[in-house]
Amino acid sequence: MRHIISILLENESGALSRVAGLFSARGYNIESLTVAPTEDASLSRLTLVTRGNDQIIEQIVKQLNKLVDVVKLVDLTEGPHIERELMMAKIRASGESRAEMYRLVEIFRGHVLDVTEGTYTVELTGPGDKLDAFIATVGDESIVEVVRSGVTGIARGPKGLHV
């Protein structure tokens, strides 16, 4: 199963490598990883997407909690949550396909950020699978370049993840 784990981490140098090192040392997979500062300067928020059966996910959560720099974490996929990822894609759009590409971007609620004679550079946000679907629909042969931010997320409801 795919899980999104959101972590409040001490904003210490090396804290990120402890998390990354844990995953490589124990052979857990990381599908994506994002880190950024939070409203509290002493903390960063790290979101990672991983896969595994219940037993593996339980171990991942326990091992993460064991890291001294991890202040708090939540497995977002355990409850209702919102997931977002940002993607910028450079796609081939010339001749007949140009209008078609534009329409596709609109259907996926993307924006065009940059235009050249033969390409569009577009921005899309959404859950990871929506971005996957866009790429699949556009087709490999039309993709020049894709950059994705990695997934980030937040739980639904009034409560926040705080120390």
Partner: peptide, 14 residues
Amino acid sequence: SVGITRPCVKHNFL
């Protein structure tokens, strides 16, 4: 040193 020992310490500091 912090990098080399990271996987074999409970914690480390620079």
